[in-house]
Design a protein around this nucleic acid. Structure first.
Lengths: 114, 114
DNA sequence: TATTGAGTTGACTAACAACTCAACATAGTC
DNA sequence: GACTATGTTGAGTTGTTAGTCAACTCAATA
C-alpha cells in the first residue's frame, strides 16, 4: 500500500479546485515557485503552518496534507511538551507503538474525559 | 511550585556523580564549555538526542532531564506523525488543553488498552 | 610560584529549514 | 508572431539550532 507523496497529492488537490500555482501561492503567502517545487517533491514538505494555510486555501481538512508532511505545528509542540505529565504520556505511547485502531480508541477515551 | 531549571538539575546530578564537566562532555561527545553554559542556563537545553546521552552518561532515566528540556526526540516526532489517527488524536488533545491530572489519567487508560 | 584541574565567557560557525528571486520553457490565443 | 498564462529550475537568502574554539578566572597543590 504505497502512500502518495505530499507533492503529488497537493498537485492533485489544487488541480481539482482549478487553481493556478500563483493563485494558491498568493493566498498562502509564499512564492509560487515554491509551490511548484513542493508539488514535484524537489523540496521537503512545508512547515506545518504553511501546510495548514494551503489546506484552508484549498478547502480541505488540514489533516489531509499534515499527515503526509510529517510535521507538527509549533503550537502543537508546545501543547505536547508543556508539562511533565504530557511528556510521560509521550514516552508511554512511543513504547507501545499504537495501531490506528488503538489511536482512535484513545481519542474517544480522551473525549470521555470531560 | 517552582520547577527547577534544566541547568540547575544537570549541575546537581553531575556533582552527585562526582563527574567533571570535561569528562561528562567527553562521554557525551560535546565540548565541555557547552556543558558549562547549559548548566548556567546560558543556552537552551540541548537537543533531545544529546539530553538522552547525558542521562545515559550520568546513569539516570532519560525522562528526568528530557521532561525539563521541552524537546522531543526525532524518533518521538515520527511516532506522533506517522499516522492520520495519531494526528487526529493530537488535534483533539490540543483543543482540550489537558491538565496534568488528565494527562496522567490518559496515560493509565493508554496502558489498559492492551 | 609555577603548574594543574575545574569552570566560565564571548565570539564565532556549520548545518539545516523554509523559503525568495530571476530566468527560462511551453502551450494556447489574439 | 507577439502576448499571456502557467509551470519549472538554479542559485541565493534568512533565521534558527546546536553547538565549537580560544581565552580567561580561580582554587589547590607540588
Amino acid at each position: 500500500m504505497e502512500e502518495i507523496s505530499y507533492g503529488k497529492l497537493l498537485k492533485e488537490l489544487r488541480r481539482q479546485k482549478g487553481v493556478a500555482q500563483r493563485d494558491l501561492a498568493a493566498s498562502v503567502g509564499v512564492d509560487f515557485s515554491y509551490i511548484s517545487k513542493i508539488e514535484n517533491d524537489r523540496l521537503q514538505p512545508p512547515s506545518a503552518d504553511t501546510t495548514i494555510k494551503i489546506c484552508e486555501a484549498l478547502g480541505v481538512p488540514n489533516e489531509v496534507l499534515l499527515s503526509l508532511s510529517g510535521k507538527v505545528s509549533s503550537e502543537m509542540k508546545d501543547t505536547m511538551t508543556s508539562s511533565k505529565s504530557a511528556i510521560k504520556f509521550l514516552h508511554a505511547v512511543k513504547d507501545m507503538q499504537l495501531t490506528d485502531a488503538e489511536w482512535d480508541k484513545l481519542t474517544s477515551k480522551l473525549k470521555k474525559l470531560r
